[in-house]
Design a binder for these strands. Structure first.
Length: 829
DNA sequence: AGCACGCCGACT
DNA sequence: GTCGGCGTGCTC
């Protein structure tokens, strides 16, 4: 990988003609470059172009990495094939190409895998070999007796298809051992093979009317004049399908006008796009607060620089309005904007507000789009016209040519980090690289900034970072009060309900129709920590400052459950009694949304509720539907999980009940305090956004926990100071960096031994650059019947992340174990 | 990943 | 002898 990258980093920046090109061929298992001849009709070929090339007997997609005038040694001219087609040209600006290289390098991922996430499906799609009947029916029947059985089977299949044509792959799957049969059919000239061109999702074509003649011309009939004037009023250019509706005219009339030269009818690519719109369209011109005005002014000062701005605004402080105003400025300067949000489906309000303000210059890009929609949006993004892309993390790779601003809203959110397939990129980091390359500012917005961002903005002397604060709500309302309820006391006083006395009272006092409530439950998930119901004590690892996990697969020789730290593999027998208070009430934790709604229905039958969790929002558009219906007052209580924490703005909500916060607090990783603070602060911030003040009730078994206290006092600075101290002590990020190596295999013993062997290799190669933690089994060891182990590498801050030679490590895995590298992981499960 | 090539065992 | 199994190695 290293050598490949250093060889292409000096890619040609000129468009000088070249005899050959080096192509990164899109074929799994290949990492090298292949040289192709440039045919004279494709002389304009450039680095970054997507091409089709012959490869073996197939045609594959690939990317031109550089132009060369000399053949690599050991390659004869006769071996070189020619590029067959340039599929797509000119969208990889030099900057963009550098960005992809940087991602490939930093996240230790083959360049092609990076390119694949940056491109929409279909651009690199490989061609397929197809087999077609070419002989006449009569000849086929004549030959049939002499055919071998597989040939006959193939023939029958082909004859059954209307076109007499199937992909080669389909036929070989359907007919076992088809090789000889296929050969026979070919040699008898009954069938032919051919290569199907890589199919791009064809953009939808639509007819557009363009006014070319003067509508006041006297030769026109009055009806014709009317129609043409209507077209002129619409700007002289319009989709035929739209015009038909508003002018109520017929095709024959338009054809007549076209043949007389008054209009032109042209086919144009219509880009399919997500147009879902909802009720949050109203465009309220709020009076800006002084802080907002100052923030906008500061950001505008920083345009055309690569500054990073941390916009720290409390919940309800009007960050969105700051974005909107700034974006308007960028658009006025004919530049485009990239706006990243955690999850699009969860924030219909945001997209609605953007659509209301900027109309069809807003383009939504996320993974839930269909392939066609994604392809079309991607084509749209290539255009130089000023536009706004609102998208989730992968939209950081939007190929906008005139980028003027990048915004990451809710920048602390974990969904900006990819942990599943490599590259395991963090959109915030990629955004910072992109901001440097494009020389445009990056705005990070949050009510609860990530520790990393806070530290960089507040503590560092880096002149590139700027800190802007919006400490007050736009309505002039205070932040909601947060009451912490000690659930141990509730238990003692005989309240066995999941709702504390205070929460019950608050729900009873809710005035349906005028006030609404939100009940928050931490998603049950795999919160496998053990905690004492009597005193709140949790069992922690003595070496790692994380909670111990109960492990399904771990029992000791006496069949006692074992607790394990999945950072360092520390093992302990689960005590029968709480080590702190000797109570036998030492239990696992968990509570579901369903349980809450049941209890709610029982205790408060007069309150109408809606459930908002992954069960009820599985369908497309369900988020929007539930939020809309709640916003319109069709329910009094919204019961949900994590999803509720993301920027929804419902002015009627006056009460937030955090039914249980402890599951979040005790996630087995070093970030649990930070995440808890962020989620709880955000959830509490959902209330009191309208005319009436808000109140949050936080139920916990750990009322004195510093994180809970920080949420109660809403003192971000204080919390972050403490937390940074703790991180520093353990050299956890941002005072150190980590790399997580994940190993999976269908064979449990094999992964364990292989992971152990790799750990030994890593220790041998460490040379003091990093510390090796593990190997340990993953918290959820078996997923989809694959067993997962992991190794953590911990780097001191001063040492850049350097991995030892990964090629030898990959080689030593064998083919039954696969490994992936997660650089600066957020998710340790 | 495909797909050739090539080398072994069981059938007309 | 030949067909068909499968391991190995190459694709500019």
């Amino acid at each position: 990988m290293k050598s490949l990258q250093s060889s292409i980093i000096n890619h040609s920046k000129t468009t000088k003609m070249a005899d050959w090109v080096e192509v990164l061929v899109d074929c799994p298992g290949l990492q090298g470059l292949y040289t192709y001849q440039v045919p004279s009709d494709l002389a304009a070929i450039q680095a970054g172009d997507i091409v089709s090339v012959p490869f073996g007997n197939r045609t594959l997609g690939g990317i031109v990495v550089r132009l060369v005038n000399q053949l690599p040694s050991g390659l004869a001219v006769e071996q070189i094939k020619a590029v067959s087609e340039v599929v797509c040209t000119g969208f990889f600006s030099i900057n963009y190409w550098d960005l992809l290289l940087q991602v490939a390098d930093y996240y230790h991922t083959p360049l092609l895998q990076v390119i694949r996430i940056a491109l929409p499906p279909g651009v690199l799609s490989r061609s397929q070999r197809r087999v077609r009947l070419i002989a006449k029916k009569q000849l086929i029947e004549q030959s049939r007796p002499q055919l071998n059985p597989t040939a006959r089977q193939l023939l029958t299949l082909l004859q059954a298809s209307p076109e007499g044509d199937y992909t080669w792959q389909y036929l070989t799957r359907k007919v076992r051992n088809s090789r000889s049969g296929m050969q026979q059919l070919h040699s008898l000239k009954l069938v032919a093979s051919y290569i199907e061109r890589p199919k791009l999702a064809r953009p939808k074509q639509q007819q557009v009317l363009i006014l070319t003649g003067d509508p006041r011309n006297l030769e026109l009939t009055s009806r014709q004049k009317e129609v043409l004037l209507c077209l002129q009023q619409q700007g002289g250019e319009m989709l035929w399908s739209e015009f038909q509706k508003i002018a109520r005219t017929s095709k024959s009339m338009m054809d007549q006008l076209a043949s007389d030269g008054y209009v032109q009818i042209v086919d144009r690519e219509i880009l399919r796009r997500d147009q879902s719109a909802g009720i949050w369209q109203e465009h309220i011109e709020h009076q800006l607060t002084a802080d907002q005005t100052a923030a906008i002014a500061k950001i505008e000062q920083l345009l055309h620089t690569s500054a990073t701005v941390l916009l720290h605004g409390v919940t309800g402080s009007g960050k969105t309005e700051v974005y909107l105003r700034t974006i308007q400025t960028i658009l006025d300067q004919q530049q485009s904007v990239l706006m990243l949000v955690p999850e699009i489906g969860l924030t219909p309000q945001l997209t609605d507000r953007f659509r209301a303000r900027f109309g069809d210059r807003v383009l939504v890009y996320h993974s839930a789009l269909s392939d066609g929609e994604r392809y079309d949006s991607w084509r749209q993004m290539l255009l130089p016209q000023p536009q706004i892309i609102i998208g989730t993390r992968s939209a950081i790779f939007a190929p906008l040519p005139n980028l003027g601003l990048i915004v990451l809203d809710e920048e602390h959110d974990g969904s900006f980090k990819q942990d599943q397939p490599m590259p395991t990129y963090h959109a915030r980091l990629v955004a910072s690289w992109r901001s440097t390359l494009a020389n445009c500012p990056l705005v990070l917005g949050s009510a609860t900034p990530a520790l990393e961002s806070w530290q960089a903005a507040a503590d560092s002397n880096d002149p590139n970072w700027h800190y802007l604060s919006l400490p007050e709500r736009v309505t002039g309302r205070d932040l909601p009060t947060v009451d912490v309820i000690d659930m141990r006391e509730e238990l003692k006083s005989g309240n066995r309900s999941i709702f504390s006395q205070s929460l019950q009272t608050a729900l009873a006092d809710l005035r349906p129709g005028q006030e609404q409530a939100i009940l928050f439950i931490h998603r049950r998930g795999h919160s496998t920590f053990v905690s004492c119901r009597a005193c709140g004590h949790t069992l922690d690892c003595p070496h790692c400052d994380v909670s111990l996990s109960y492990h399904q697969h771990s029992v000791d020789s006496n069949n006692q459950p074992l607790l394990r730290c999945h950072y360092c593999n520390y093992l302990a027998v689960q005590p029968k009694r709480c080590p702190a208070c000797d109570s036998p009430q030492l239990k696992f934790f968990g509570s579901g949304t369903q349980k809450v709604t049941e209890e709610l229905a029982k205790s408060f039958p007069e309150l109408r509720y809606l459930r908002f969790d992954s069960d009820t929002t599985r369908n497309k558009g369900a988020h929007r539907q539930i939020l809309t219906s709640f916003a319109q007052g069709e329910a009094d209580v919204l019961v949900g999980t994590q999803m509720l924490a993301k920027g929804i703005d419902l002015p009627q909500v006056t009460l937030v009940g955090i039914v249980t916060a402890d599951g979040l607090l005790n996630m087995p990783d070093y970030r649990s305090a930070e995440r808890t603070f962020q989620v709880l602060t955000q959830v509490a911030g959902r209330c009191g956004r309208g005319e009436q003040p808000g109140r949050a009730i936080l139920q916990t078994y750990n009322p004195e926990h510093p994180t809970i206290q920080a949420v109660r006092s809403q003192n971000y600075q204080q919390f972050i100071g403490k937390e940074l101290g703790a991180r520093q002590e353990w050299a956890y990020p941002p005072y150190g960096r980590m790399v997580l190596l994940r190993f999976t295999s269908s064979e449990p013993e094999l992964v364990e031994t292989v992971t152990g062997r790799v750990a030994d290799q890593l220790i041998a190669a460490a040379a003091g650059h990093y510390q090796v933690l593990g190997p340990t089994p993953a918290v959820v060891m078996r997923v989809a019947n694959r067993y997962r182990w992991q190794i953590m590498l911990k780097y001191p801050l001063a040492i850049p992340i350097q991995l030892p030679d990964m090629a030898t490590i990959y080689d030593s895995l064998g083919d039954k174990v696969s490994m992936s590298i997660d650089v600066e992981p957020l998710n340790f499960l």
